[in-house]
Simulated scan of single mutants.
Amino acid sequence: MELAPLTPENLGKAVSITLRPEQEAFVAPVVQSIAEAYVNPTAWPRLVVDGDDVLAFIMGNFDPGHEVEAFRAGIWRLNVAASAQGRGVGRFAVRALEEEARVRGVKRISVLWERGDHGPEGFYLKLGFVPTGEELFGEVVAFKDLSARGAFP
């Protein structure tokens, strides 16, 4: 697996990523994320690919001057294709975003999620994100400290 930028060649496969049906209520489709990235210069959209196969889409945001701490650096979206789930693809994508954050000097990243039976809460908790008890837009706000460069959970 490797991280790749969006290109005209892989765009069609990127927007074709489909989640499990029960997960669709928890994350916007890739096409919406790409549109948001187009109008937000601080967005960081990337794909996880394996050869010609597009396995996942991750979009981060790096806006150190944002007035809301949760929007200064973190994960905006993570869409892992249903066929690629359970193989470490999501973990790989989050680690890649963490490395990008470190390169930029970021010490802490955020993620927001909606609670629900098929939501991503367990995934993010396993990766070391800690909820703050705060909610934004009805979603849980969580942070992960990147200052320790030890092993990833």
Rank of each mutant, 00 (worst) to 15 (best):
N61T: 13
N61K: 15
N61H: 11
N61M: 12
N61W: 03
N61F: 07
N61P: 01
F62S: 00
F62Y: 15
F62T: 08
F62P: 07
P64Q: 14
P64Y: 10
P64D: 13
P64T: 13
G65Q: 11
G65C: 02
G65Y: 01
H66T: 03
H66P: 12
H66E: 08
H66C: 04
H66I: 04
H66F: 08
H66W: 00
H66R: 05
E67F: 09
E67R: 10
E67Q: 01
E67W: 07
E67D: 08
E67S: 08
V68G: 03
V68D: 14
V68E: 11
V68T: 11
V68W: 08
E69G: 03
E69M: 04
A70M: 13
A70N: 05
A70E: 06
A70T: 07
A70F: 14
F71G: 08
F71Q: 02
F71L: 10
F71I: 00
F71A: 11
F71E: 05
R72G: 13
R72S: 02
A73F: 03
A73D: 00
A73W: 02
A73H: 11
A73M: 01
A73K: 09
G74A: 12
G74F: 07
I75W: 05
I75Q: 02
I75A: 03
I75S: 06
I75T: 00
I75E: 05
W76L: 11
W76V: 07
W76A: 05
W76D: 11
W76T: 02
R77V: 10
R77Q: 14
L78S: 04
L78P: 04
L78H: 12
L78Q: 12
L78G: 09
L78A: 10
L78I: 12
N79G: 11
N79P: 00
N79H: 15
N79R: 02
N79I: 04
V80K: 13
V80F: 04
V80H: 12
A81T: 00
A81W: 00
A81G: 14
A81N: 10
A81D: 09
A82H: 14
A82K: 12
A82M: 05
A82F: 08
A82G: 12
S83H: 13
S83W: 09
S83E: 07
S83R: 15
S83P: 15
S83L: 02
S83Q: 04
S83M: 09
S83N: 07
A84V: 00
A84E: 08
Q85F: 08
Q85A: 06
Q85S: 12
Q85Y: 04
Q85P: 14
G86M: 13
G86I: 15
G86A: 09
G86P: 15
R87V: 00
R87D: 06
G88N: 11
G88M: 08
G88W: 05
V89Q: 11
V89Y: 07
G90F: 06
G90D: 07
G90A: 12
G90V: 07
G90H: 15
R91V: 08
R91G: 14
R91P: 03
R91M: 01
F92P: 01
F92Q: 11
F92E: 04
F92C: 01
A93I: 07
A93D: 15
A93K: 08
A93C: 11
V94A: 10
V94E: 11
R95A: 04
R95V: 03
R95S: 03
R95P: 01
R95E: 06
R95Y: 02
R95L: 12
R95T: 06
R95I: 02
A96G: 15
A96C: 05
A96N: 01
